[in-house]
Design a protein around this nucleic acid. Structure first.
Lengths: 239, 239
DNA sequence: TGCATATAGTTTGTCGACAAGTTTTTTGCC
DNA sequence: GGCAAAAAACTTGTCGACAAACTATATGCA
């Protein structure tokens, strides 16, 4: 396929700093993977991607190696790199880890947060609430991620934060996979209220309450995803 | 410095598979970093490393990018890559995450292990015990890591396993930093006994006992490291 | 001598090219 | 027509080269 790929506007190799090529490739690919612009399992061709971003294959390759380290792509030796497939058999492990990270990061936030952290968290929550009111599911998913990432940051444990962000991103991909087609009749106002409760508990430095709220919040999200998957499976059986 | 680096025997570019260059560079660097052959903060020159391994800079660079993703090196933009420094101000976060991963992985091993897993775990424990009896500290550190990694594998949650292995490796580096000079008068037989107790609890599928034992084991290790650091600090003050 | 500036020397980030594997197409045979 | 082997086409992994950015040295001036 020597198709003329869309040249992707805004990528002028001239006004790009030294080292900015790999960064651009990384961020572009990352966004497209998480937004499901690139479907799980879809092959990524280094040459065409390099052409699309107006750069050589070297920085593209660097981006792919980084993404492989984060589990977002799988590099098959001597064969094409593919977008990491969603690992359905291991969804249980995913839910388990996600729930634990919700709890741990929120606990630590209650313990170690500083005044500025609360401002950042509240700002994220405001953006999230706006997305909910606008009914913008895609934005909701993203900003929910950012909200919890901000809480994790306040906990000041980079090991947890890194794993949590990775899990939230993976969840973002799963949600996009199912949430879009699902009926949005029931607006998820509960999430906003739960977020508010979590913020209050963090501000109060109530560690145990944070743990409980985080666990409930996580369980609710896990349940929602499982229901969406189950509904999807029923639909497929009917066809 | 255009010093003639030692050519590192056993690295013949001829009998190296396609794709084996980057792998060799990655594993070599990784081992040298964890064994403190390369000191924390020490710069890594791409060109000389490439020459030492008899390959071009490209596979070396790929290895560095991967190692940066795992936090073992820090790539300073447009400046030399350095071996990741040990982050002493954040040691608390490290201990916290390490302890949690000890507990979680051991719990999950009790729940989900299969017969073959126990064989693998016991094999690691045998190797570890041999290192203890031989008084080989370096080997002890490595095989203790492998023992707990095997338990984590039995828990079948790759998210936890990955983080845990990363933490254990970081701990391996810290231990090497302090353990060598410390007097080895008191042979750490307790570790062997604790390991045996953990194996028995996993085999019995006693989740709560696993949690308790893992926590105690982790606390003991954390305490040991803290004592070593404190002793080291006292020594430095005396000088 | 001490400091700012210019200069030389490294080291990294990116490029284009090429060869080793893969995949796809073509060819030959039954 | 259907299948196996050979060939063409493509993709990746590695190489050597070059220019931008940084570091160390040398130069000039007060």
């Amino acid at each position: 396929m020597t198709d003329a790929e869309s040249p992707t506007p805004g990528t002028d190799p001239a006004d790009r700093k030294r080292g900015g090529g790999a960064k651009l490739a990384y961020e572009t690919l990352r966004d497209e993977i998480l937004d499901l612009v690139l479907a799980p399992g879809e092959p990524i061709d280094e040459a065409s991607l390099a052409e699309r971003l107006a750069m050589s294959r070297t920085p593209v390759r660097e981006a792919l190696v980084r993404l492989a380290g984060e589990g977002l792509v799988t590099m098959l030796p001597n064969r094409s790199t593919i977008v990491a497939p969603v690992d359905f058999p291991n969804l249980y492990a995913f839910f388990d880890a996600l729930t634990l990270m919700y709890r741990v990061t929120t606990r630590l936030a209650a313990e170690f947060h500083q005044p500025a952290d609360l401002d950042a968290i509240r700002a994220r929550q405001a953006v999230f609430a706006r997305a909910v009111q606008a009914g913008d599911t895609a934005a909701m998913i993203t900003h929910n991620r950012d909200f919890h990432a901000a809480i994790a940051e306040a906990g000041r444990n980079s090991y947890y934060t890194q794993l949590f962000v990775r899990l939230l991103d993976e969840g973002r991909r799963i949600l996009r996979l199912y949430y879009y087609p699902s009926f949005s009749a029931q607006m998820p106002h509960p999430y906003i209220l739960e977020h508010e409760a979590i913020i209050a508990a963090v501000a109060d430095r109530d560690v145990e309450l944070c743990d409980t709220l985080a666990r409930e919040h996580a369980d609710q999200i896990v349940r929602q995803i499982q229901e969406m998957i189950a509904r999807d499976r029923r639909q497929h059986l009917r066809l």
